[in-house]
Amino acid sequence: MRRKADRVDKVAAKVVLQSYRGGTCDESDPLFREALAELSNDPALAEWFQAEQEFDAVMAEKFRNVPVETAVKKRLLGEEQPPVATPGR
């Protein structure tokens, strides 16, 4: 029975830790503190978590490269005239 309970705890910890981001208010969230405490008892879970954090860092970097077009922003700020309307739009 204990083994099954451990597995459930590990699954639950993984679900919670997938949302964790270090250096933010997550560090003081009791939900994450509890899940992070599991890492010191489970090397495999700690290794999984490390890989997960690395994946998140790479993904965030990929998304940061999305260019932001500024024509609409300029229009909203009154710095540019709206484009001429085209048929079918």
Partner: peptide, 10 residues
């Protein structure tokens, strides 16, 4: 894995 994602085009 993270290393392989890093090689992918955004």
């Amino acid at each position: 894995g993270a290393a392989d994602v890093a090689t992918l085009n955004p």
